[in-house]
Simulated scan of single mutants.
Amino acid sequence: MALILSLDTSTKVCSVAVHEDGELIGSQSYHLQKSHSSLLPVIVEQLMENVEKKLNELDAVALSAGPGSYTGLRIGTATAKGFAFTLGIPMVAITSLDTMFEQVAPMFSNSSVLIPMIDARRMEVFCLAKKGDGQLVWEPKPLIVDEDSFSEFVDEDLVFFGNGSDKFKEMFPHVKFVPDIHPSAAHMGKLAHDKFLKEHFEDLAYYEPDYLKEYRTNVPSQKFKV
């Protein structure tokens, strides 16, 4: 029996879940406007009490690898590493976009092209493309969207979802949109369990989230008097 704690902090929806052999036994999520750092350990503690499990019973910890919020991913990484180091258990990383795909894939046929999107501001998103049967079409990547971005799928049953997709409804009126889909720890179970069985563990000393693009900060300009 593999008991795995999953954490997702890649967006403003902070979620934690516990899976046993890939099956969900409990989860909690919160919509937050500020940092996840102070609440995440509390949420984990509450969830473990709810499912009547103890931290020392865990076999692994899984976390959202990104893409997503730079700060959120850093907090999730630090928390997951802390559990892994303290408990002496391995850590596995799951792409945030894959947990979104897991939620939507059962709704469509194997031939549909599903494109989860996480908002990267303005007309840019983080996305990947997969067939409904899980066949990878596009690797995860940042994409500045225009009217020709998805021209290769003109004859396909195309589906957009995620918080990055809403701004494209007018641009792509013939595409199907699925609302209210976001990265979720509750949907990491099967992916995390598969990596656990294959021993695809992360190196705790060197692991970094997959931001997909360089993080930038806006430095205010300074004016000097002569």
Rank of each mutant, 00 (worst) to 15 (best):
L24E: 07
F83M: 06
E23N: 13
F224W: 13
S112D: 05
K169C: 04
N218R: 13
E147K: 15
L39T: 09
Q33V: 07
P116L: 04
V42Y: 07
H193G: 00
M117Q: 10
S27Y: 05
M188E: 02
L158G: 05
T77K: 04
V13H: 08
L24P: 05
N218T: 14
S111L: 07
K190H: 08
H200E: 15
M1N: 08
S38N: 12
K34F: 12
S151D: 14
M117D: 00
A120C: 07
L158V: 15
G134P: 03
H31M: 07
P209D: 10
V219A: 10
S29R: 13
K213F: 07
G26P: 08
L128R: 01
E202H: 05
V113P: 01
N110D: 15
S69C: 07
M123S: 13
L32M: 14
S109L: 11
V42G: 03
V42R: 11
A129N: 03
M1Y: 11
Y207L: 11
V137C: 11
M188L: 04
E139P: 11
K198T: 10
M48C: 09
V175P: 00
H193K: 08
F196R: 01
R216F: 07
L40T: 02
P173N: 11
L204T: 11
K169Y: 07
S184Q: 11
K176R: 14
K190F: 06
E139K: 15
A186E: 12
L97P: 03
L97K: 00
S27K: 06
E102P: 09
Y206K: 05
M48D: 03
D194H: 14
Y215T: 11
A60S: 09
F101I: 01
T71W: 05
E23R: 15
T71G: 06
P209A: 09
T71E: 04
Y30I: 06
K198V: 03
Y215Q: 13
P183A: 06
S112T: 12
Y211L: 10
V154E: 14
F108P: 02
G68D: 01
L128C: 14
H200Y: 10
G88P: 12
G134A: 12
F153D: 04
I181F: 04
D180T: 08
N163E: 02
L191T: 02
F85E: 04
E152N: 09
F177D: 00
P140G: 06
K141N: 08
V159D: 02
